[in-house]
Structure formats: C-alpha cells, structure tokens
Design a protein around this nucleic acid. Structure first.
Lengths: 201, 201
DNA sequence: AATAAATTACACCGATTAGTGTAATTTATT
DNA sequence: AATAAATTACACTAATCGGTGTAATTTATT
C-alpha cells in the first residue's frame, strides 16, 4: 500500500513562474525557450515540465497570476469631502500602478503584445476578469447624485476618462521604456482638468 | 565583355512584399517562416533571398513601405470658415485611416507588437519619420491666432487630443479586431466636445 | 533567334526547439 | 534511519527554420 508523503512544491513552482516571467519579458513568448526558463529559474528543465506540462500551460499560469494580482485593487469610494481632482487622480494612479515597476511594465508589454497577436485569446482572457470601468462608473454615479458631475452617459464619460489616461500615459510608457514621473504629473493634472471641463456639473 | 540586359524585378518584389505582409500579419514575425512567405507570394524561396538577403531585411522593407506610405497624408490647414468640430474630426479621421482597412489594421497591430518587443528599435524607427503632432500643432497655432482656441501650452493640447483619439478609438480597435464605425462616430463627437470644453476660447 | 538575366526546383546544412524517458540523487516526512 | 516524493542530469527525438549551392529552366531584351 502507498503512503503519502506530500512535500511542499510551491517554492519550486514560484521560482519557475518567476523565471518564466523574466524570460518572457525579455525575449517574448516565441523566443523564450524552456531551457532558458529552467536555467533562469535555477531548476532542471524536467522539473519545469513536471510542474507545468507544456510551454502553453506555463504561459497561462503566468498570465493568470498577473491578472489575478492585478484584480486586487481596493475600491475607491466616492467621498464628498474630497475634491473631484484628487479622487480622479486616485483612479489614474491605480491604472498607472500597472506599469510603475519594471516587472509590471514588462508584464504589461508582454501581455499587450500577446493580445495583439491573438485577438480572440485577448477577448476570452479579458472577459474572465471584471471590467475596468466598473469602479469608476460607481464613483461617477455617486458624484452625479451629489450634484458634482453631469453627463448624458456616465459610461461614455468613464470611457473618455480611461481614454485620456491610457492614451496620454499608459501606452506612451509601454513604448518609451517606462514612466517618466516628472513628465506624467503635469499631464495627469491636465487630463483631469480636461475631463472636468466636460463633465463637472 | 558583359552585356547588360536589365529585366523588371519590381513585379516579383511587390509580390514578395505582399506575401510577407500577409504572413507577418497572421503569424507574427517569429512564426512567419520564409518558406511560408515564398509560398504565399507565389515565388520560390530562392527568389525571396535573391531580392532581400535575409528575413531581417525583408522585414525592414515591409516596415519602410508601410511607414513611407503612412507619411503621405495631406496637410490639414486651418480654415476660419469651417467649424472647429469638423476640422478636428478631419485630424481624428486621418488617424483612424491607419486602422480602417484589414491590411492597414493588420500592419498597425504587427508593428505595434514589434515595437513593444523592441523599444529601442521602436524609438529609432519612429525618429526617422516626422512627428504626428506637428500638423495639429500648426493648426492649433492658427486657431489660437484666430481667437478660437486658448491653451497654456498648445503642445500639451495636441497631446491631449491624440490621447483621446488613440485611447478611445485606435487602441481599442487594435484589440477588438477592427473599427466599429457605428460605435466610433458618437465617441468621436464626444471626445471632440471634451477637447473643446477645455481648449475652446 | 541568340543571349543574358531572372527564376525555379530541390537537396542540403547547422542550429534550435518542445517535449520525453530514465536512472540516479536529493529532500523532507514519519 | 527508513521511506517515498521530488528533483536532477542527460541523452534523445522529431520537427522546424534560416540560409546556401547548383543545375535546369523560364523570361524578356537586342
């Protein structure tokens, strides 16, 4: 009869995921070889295959980890005692957080690239996680009730806000190798002022 | 002594470039094999290598063709007799043109993906072509002289405008498989209204 | 029709890759 | 210390890919 001696596999698993992220970020999916990932993780290739059965599975695990982690953003509730500017800035900063460390920036670039190359996979993956707009939409509803915001469609207003943040900060940072905080700060003030010029009551 | 009988190589060259674009678009750079490109172009692999010495060269030729073609946008001069809305819409539409056919959309996605994977190459390549903002900047200067536009910095205003267009239309289209004109039209009206809420004099 | 350039078909090379099988070895648990 | 699970080292496969060499063939020009 077989005894069960379960050892802790999570350490190796984490090391493999870490290595995979590094290699995926710096070579892209196609050029990231399983040998290189194993070497980077400090683990034998066989162990990589024992934990994740294939390159595709390993990739999925990396993506899942990232998107799950990304999902853990605390809600930003409407506060009538704070200015609209500083509350909107909090929403912008939550978006900027995703590209505000070399690793998160790298993962964002990697995922964006993968999504560009496989639109269907992008749609399916994004559909599994709650929409980005939702939290801002809740906030806008409260602000409207409070008489501070006015818009024909709050959904469109939310989309305009994220268009401003992503178009002015997120995407430029993806291509320029990272955030230039000194340049971004005044830009954030400007896009928030623009948003409020249109939607402040 | 050697006679020179020059035949026209441009037909084959064009066919190869066409095939390369197709394959690059649908498989990405790494997975696009030279055999597949030759087959798609209806040409022997040897001919591909006779025209372009390497995969890298062929890629460069594709990119050059696209960016050169892209550069040929007619200038949009400020016209005091037209509304600001319709003139700004022309700028937006010039941007949208780049993703408004399956082929241009595909090339935009492909190039964006390549740029994400090689930031240095992105910078060098973009630097070889005139900045996107320039034409709008000229227009804004004229509009300001005409007393219709007012901004602390016209450059920032131009960046806000393109942030709106790219964030609301260009990038979403890259990921969603193309433009939904019915949905984009009201969005364009909204982002132009937003821009003018901030910068109209 | 003669000629030279362009193209083709095809075999081939070296390198790389995802993935497997296995026997030996390390590791943690009882 | 005994034991079973986890890991390792390593050899190996089958496939793919970028690129080359060559001899035969097609093509357009004079």
């Amino acid at each position: 009869m077989t005894q069960t001696k379960n050892r802790d596999k999570s350490k190796k698993r984490a090391a493999i995921l870490d290595g995979a992220v590094d290699v995926f970020i710096c070579m892209g999916y196609e050029l990231a070889s399983m040998d290189k990932i194993a070497e980077t993780a400090g683990v034998s290739k066989r162990t990589v295959y024992n934990h994740f059965g294939s390159k595709e599975n390993l990739f999925q695990a990396v993506v899942n980890d990232f998107l799950t982690q990304r999902q853990n953003l605390k809600t930003i509730a409407y506060d009538p005692d704070k200015t609209l500017e500083e509350q909107l800035l909090a929403f912008a900063n939550a978006e900027i957080f995703l590209i505000d460390s070399p690793r998160r920036l790298g993962l964002s670039k990697f995922l964006t690239s993968v999504f560009l190359n496989d639109t269907n996979y992008a749609r399916e993956t994004v559909a599994k996680y709650p929409p980005v707009y939702d939290m801002l939409l809740d906030w806008l509803r409260e602000a409207e009730k409070d008489g501070k915001i006015k818009a024909d469609s709050l959904l469109i207003a939310a989309r305009v806000f994220y268009a401003l943040v992503e178009g002015a900060v997120t995407y430029p940072s993806l291509f320029s190798g990272g955030i230039n905080h000194a340049a971004v700060e005044p830009m954030l003030k400007e896009i928030i002022a623009t948003f409020l010029a249109r939607y402040a009551a």
